[in-house]
């Protein structure tokens, strides 16, 4: 079964484009990364899937249920963590957790207690006085305490220190191993690369690439670092050329022979040819007029 399936999903805010013709498929049990810069349509996609906003066109199903007609059933099985968690004034953490569980008509006490322990969250603290990171922890517990089948996480690690990030992803991996689908929207490509099995890249409201993370990163391009002073003029396939103190660095896509001949004819002390990481690929996707590297 597919956890998320959208077909030509479109949302316009008046004349402004949110998402347009979005076709996305996330299999149940996947750890899926959703990558895109601000304004690309990530949050619009998530808010449409959760029924916070109505699509202008197209269709979407979450856990096999139509988002227009089965919203409540969907939300019963979904845990959502917004990019910035807001709660009602004057409440303590335990009140928020109890309210969230109560709205789901579920006793989540044991799971909530365990999550609070692992995330080192003080349930007696007032939410008004919490830091951004601690409010995020409250949001995480609210999203996870009812053991949802699908986790939709929007920029989940913002504000969390590295130790907490590690614990958070450890919890996510456990949930994923137990069968939950994780849909992780993030700017932080290293965490997508590290944790997700597949990812989708959204630009200007459209999905421009989707596949296994290693396939997305493996675009045939190579990151080349040269210690020396090669003359790269006339060598096709060189992009993103940076001049360093003692050499140059660039992305190269093309046959190896011309590159090696160019380097061999120049005073070169050292060469490193590596695969670019997802961050570099991502930046390329978002470069003006950029095509997959």
């Amino acid at each position: 079964m597919q956890a998320i399936q959208t077909e030509n999903l479109t949302k316009f805010y008046g004349r402004a484009r949110g998402i347009e013709g979005l076709d996305l498929e996330v299999e149940a049990g996947e750890f899926f990364g959703f990558i895109g810069p601000n304004g690309a349509g990530k949050s619009t996609t998530i808010r449409t899937l959760l029924g916070l906003i109505a699509p202008t066109g197209g269709s979407a199903r979450v856990l096999g249920l139509d988002i227009r007609t089965r919203r409540q059933e969907i939300l019963r099985q979904v845990g959502y963590l917004p990019a910035e968690a807001f709660f009602y004034p004057g409440q303590r953490v335990r009140d928020v957790l109890r309210l969230s569980a109560g709205l789901r008509r579920k006793d989540c006490t044991a799971t909530a207690r365990e999550l609070c322990r692992r995330l080192q969250l003080d349930t007696s603290a007032r939410v008004d006085a919490l830091s951004f990171g601690n409010r995020k922890k409250v949001g995480i517990v609210c999203a996870l305490q009812h053991d949802p089948a699908l986790l939709i996480l929007d920029e989940p690690t913002g504000g969390l220190d590295p130790l907490m990030q590690r614990e958070f992803f450890s919890i996510l991996r456990e949930r994923n191993a137990a069968g939950a689908t994780v849909f992780l929207s993030s700017h932080i490509l290293s965490e997508v690369q590290r944790h997700c099995t597949r990812a989708g890249v959204i630009r200007d409201g459209r999905l421009i690439a989707c596949g296994k993370v290693e396939d997305l990163a493996d675009t045939g391009a190579r990151r080349v670092l040269v210690r020396g002073n090669p003359d790269l003029t006339g060598l096709p396939g060189v992009r993103g050329l940076e001049t360093l103190e003692d050499g140059v660095r660039f992305l190269y896509s093309g046959p190896m022979q011309p590159l090696l001949q160019t380097l061999a004819s120049a005073p070169v002390r050292d060469v490193q040819i590596t695969e670019p990481d997802l961050e570099e690929v991502f930046l390329h996707y978002y470069a003006e007029g950029g095509e997959p590297a």
Partner: peptide
């Protein structure tokens, strides 16, 4: 966003 992402 908090309230209406609960099953109500």
């Amino acid at each position: 966003e908090f309230l209406l992402t609960h099953p109500l």
